[in-house]
């Protein structure tokens, strides 16, 4: 499955984080919030007019800006993972 970024995936589709390409403190922070390789992630919705995204990572819902979400690479979760 080709890699995608979190800002571009379909809302509601179950994905897994592959890597966070953002350097520095913001990248560190994303990893500390649970965006580690293999973590389940899902785009819930996008705010209108180019606003932020509502995202679920693990059991945690947060909002982040589209530009920041672009640094989070994902891949579609295997069906087995979705059922787990």
């Amino acid at each position: 499955m080709a890699g995608q970024t979190l800002d571009s995936i379909l809302p509601g589709e179950a994905h897994q984080v592959t890597r966070v390409v953002l350097a520095g403190v913001l990248g560190d922070r994303l990893v500390e919030l649970g965006f580690t390789p293999g973590a389940p992630v899902q785009l819930l919705r996008r705010a209108p007019f180019g606003g932020p995204l509502q995202v679920q990572v693990r059991d945690f819902v947060l909002s982040l800006r589209r530009a920041d979400a672009q640094a989070i690479h994902t891949t579609l979760a295997a069906p087995a993972d979705q059922a787990a």
Binding site: R29, L30, L33, V61, L62, S63, R65, D68
Partner: peptide
């Protein structure tokens, strides 16, 4: 600051 805001239940 980046918008990294928890949206609690």
């Amino acid at each position: 600051a980046p918008l990294l805001l928890e949206m609690p239940p």
